[in-house]
Amino acid sequence: MNLTRLIRCTLLLGLSAAGALFAAESKPASRVTVVFSHPEKFTDLRDNASDSDNERGRARYLPPIEEYLEQQGESRLAPGQKLTITFTDIDLAGDFEPWRGPQFNDVRIIKEIYIPRLTFSFKLTDANGQVIKEGERKLQDMSFQMRIDGIRDDPLRYEKGMLGDWLRDEFRPAVAKN
Results as ranks from 00 to 15, higher is better:
Glu70Lys: 14
Thr84Leu: 07
Arg58Lys: 14
Leu124Lys: 12
Arg76Ala: 15
Lys160Trp: 02
Lys177Arg: 14
Asp126Tyr: 06
Lys138Gly: 09
Arg168Ile: 10
Asn105Met: 04
Ile110Ala: 05
Leu21Ile: 03
Glu55Gln: 07
Arg172Tyr: 13
Thr43Trp: 01
Cys9Met: 09
Leu92Asn: 04
Phe42Asp: 06
Ala29Met: 08
Asn2Ser: 11
Ile7Tyr: 05
Asp53Met: 03
Cys9Pro: 00
Leu3Lys: 12
Asp44Trp: 08
Lys133Asp: 15
Asn178Gln: 13
Pro173Thr: 15
Ile115Lys: 12
Glu40Leu: 08
Met146Cys: 09
Leu167Arg: 12
Gln145Trp: 02
Leu167Trp: 10
Leu83Phe: 02
Lys27Gly: 10
Arg58Ser: 10
Arg60Thr: 07
Gly19Leu: 15
Asn48Glu: 00
Asp154Pro: 01
Pro102Arg: 12
Asp154Cys: 06
Gln140Leu: 11
Val175Phe: 09
Pro79Ser: 11
Leu11His: 01
Arg172Val: 11
Ile151Gly: 00
Leu92Thr: 04
Pro102His: 10
Asp169Val: 08
Pro98Ala: 02
Asp91Leu: 05
Glu170Thr: 12
Thr88Ala: 11
Phe36Ser: 06
Thr10Ala: 14
Arg147Trp: 03
Val175Trp: 04
Met142Ala: 15
Arg46Cys: 04
Phe42Arg: 02
Arg31Ser: 12
Leu167Ile: 08
Glu70Phe: 00
Arg58Met: 14
Gly57Lys: 03
Trp166Ser: 03
Thr86Asp: 11
Leu6Pro: 00
Ser30Thr: 09
Pro79Arg: 04
Arg172Ser: 13
Phe104Lys: 02
Leu11Phe: 13
Leu21Arg: 06
Lys123Ile: 08
Ile132His: 02
Leu167Ala: 05
Ile85Asn: 05
Thr125Leu: 03
Asp165Val: 10
Pro63Leu: 05
Lys82Pro: 01
Asn105Ser: 14
Val175His: 08
Asp44Phe: 04
Met1Val: 06
